[in-house]
């Protein structure tokens, strides 16, 4: 293009400048002026409005995610706590039941022992009374036997024609009974 400047001028191009519009320094001032304004506007739009807004949205989202995660962690630990409490209650209940069983057992044993002791005592008393009665009866029977034996002996002696000496007979009977 630049080789044929006349034709370039004819074509209505930038007649004064070189063929490359980029190197036409006459309009640099214009471009730089508007560019600087553009950059300043974009800088203020971004730094005052857009970037703080996006940063806040991102921070908020990050915060929400962190909070949600923390809440989930919290709930999880709560669930663990509840589970532990349940386990503890179960163990406690089991121990309580065992304690009650043992207590009852001890109580019953005590009652049983007491009852057995009472019964033993009663039995012993009854046995003692019985033995006494038996001893009495025995003694009575011995006496009766002695009397009967004396009488019988006396009668026999009499019947035999002897003279019944009461004292001798009694002595004899007593001796016999002892032997």
């Amino acid at each position: 293009m630049a080789t044929d400047t006349t034709s370039a001028a004819d074509a209505g191009q930038a007649a004064a400048g070189p063929g490359m519009p980029q190197l036409d320094f006459s309009n640099w001032g214009n471009q730089i002026f508007w560019l600087v304004i553009t950059l300043i506007v974009i800088y203020f739009v971004l730094s005052r409005i857009a970037l703080p807004r996006i940063a806040s949205v991102l921070a908020e989202r990050q915060g929400t995610i962190t909070n949600d995660l923390a809440a989930a962690e919290d709930l999880k630990s709560k669930a663990h706590e509840a589970e532990a409490a349940y386990e503890k209650a179960l163990i406690d209940a089991r121990a309580e039941a065992q304690r009650i069983v043992a207590e009852t057992k001890v109580g019953i044993q005590a009652d049983l022992n007491a009852a057995i002791a009472t019964a033993d005592e009663e039995i012993a008393a009854k046995a003692a009374a019985g033995e006494k009665v038996i001893a009495d009866i025995k003694a009575n029977a011995l006496d009766s036997i002695k009397v009967v034996a004396n009488d019988t002996a006396k009668e026999i002696v009499t019947a035999m024609g002897g003279k019944a000496d009461a004292k001798t007979i009694t002595a004899a009977v007593t001796a016999r009974m002892k032997g």
Partner: peptide, 8 residues
């Protein structure tokens, strides 16, 4: 190249 083509 561009300079040679258009500016020189």
């Amino acid at each position: 190249a561009l300079l040679l083509m258009f500016a020189v």
